[in-house]
Design a protein around this nucleic acid. Structure first.
Ligand code: ZN
Ligand code: ZN
Ligand code: ZN
Ligand code: ZN
Lengths: 132, 132
DNA sequence: TTAAATATGTTATATTATAACAAACGTTAC
DNA sequence: GTAACGTTTGTTATAATATAACATATTTAA
């Protein structure tokens, strides 16, 4: 609420659209939706997306090239994201699981590489699609 | 070794290139590299990639739109993949960690969604880049 | 051996994303 | 207030990634 004030005009417009959507939005679908508000070029969208990701307001669902509003508390400013994705209906849900995130944040490989961030995507069948 | 016989001509050519590379390859870089072997169109590459992924011979690194040969035993035919990615030098390594894969395969969310697959990407700083 | 499934070749096009440049806006510091 | 700085915007063009649609060929298996 406080931080939203620091967003620029385009950033607000685009965050608003993404927050109101109940599904991940693609960049060009966002572009189409904001053209009436004066945002005409892909770069205007991509620049806002980039900033919003950096702020942890939204995440990119990498395997879908789509963008969703963060449903957790900005996921440590975008450093730890996990999604469940239904391969049938394409419904995407952000996973909020303390144990999982703790496990992954603490994960260390053999090489000693330092991990600053992770993104995890589960693919499967949602409960609605399972029934039908 | 047995299964490689079942690959088609284009699939063999493209798997060969990917296996010999020590880095993830992009589709159009693969295309460029196989043009001397008669593969001229993007679709020929993408179709082979799709099949190789299905067979678990290669994986797609989603955040990089790039393809790497599987370094494990085909990762249960491509159902469970994890990578470490250096954000400085872009080095990508497939993670093989029994505990991690067991943990993720058994992961269940609150909704009861059935997970058939996952892809996990860690981003950070590799040991070489850490030193410099 | 013929039907089905898989793979190929080809052209065109769709989709996703960035480069390069110029101008405007919003801090903050003096 | 205004200079200096970083950030945001606007704009045109283009790069990079991926698929549609259609015709043909090859392989597999009943
Ligand atoms: Zn989040
Ligand atoms: Zn579903
Ligand atoms: Zn693998
Ligand atoms: Zn590195």
């Amino acid at each position: 609420m406080a931080q939203i004030q620091t967003l620029s005009k385009n950033q607000k417009i685009i965050l608003d659209i993404i927050e109101k959507a109940n599904e991940p939005l693609k960049a060009y679908s966002i572009l189409f939706n904001v053209q009436k508000k004066g945002i005409k070029a892909p770069l205007q969208v991509y620049r806002a997306l980039e900033k919003l990701i950096k702020l942890g307001k939204i995440h990119k669902v990498e395997s879908r090239n789509a963008f969703v509003a963060c449903k957790n508390s900005n996921c440590d400013i975008s450093k730890a994201t996990a999604f469940s994705i239904c391969e049938t209906c394409e419904k995407v849900t952000e996973i909020s699981d303390q144990k999982l995130s703790k496990y992954l944040k603490n994960f260390q490989d053999k090489t000693g590489m330092i991990y600053k961030k992770y993104n995890l995507e589960f693919y499967g069948l949602c409960t609605a699609c399972k029934r039908s």
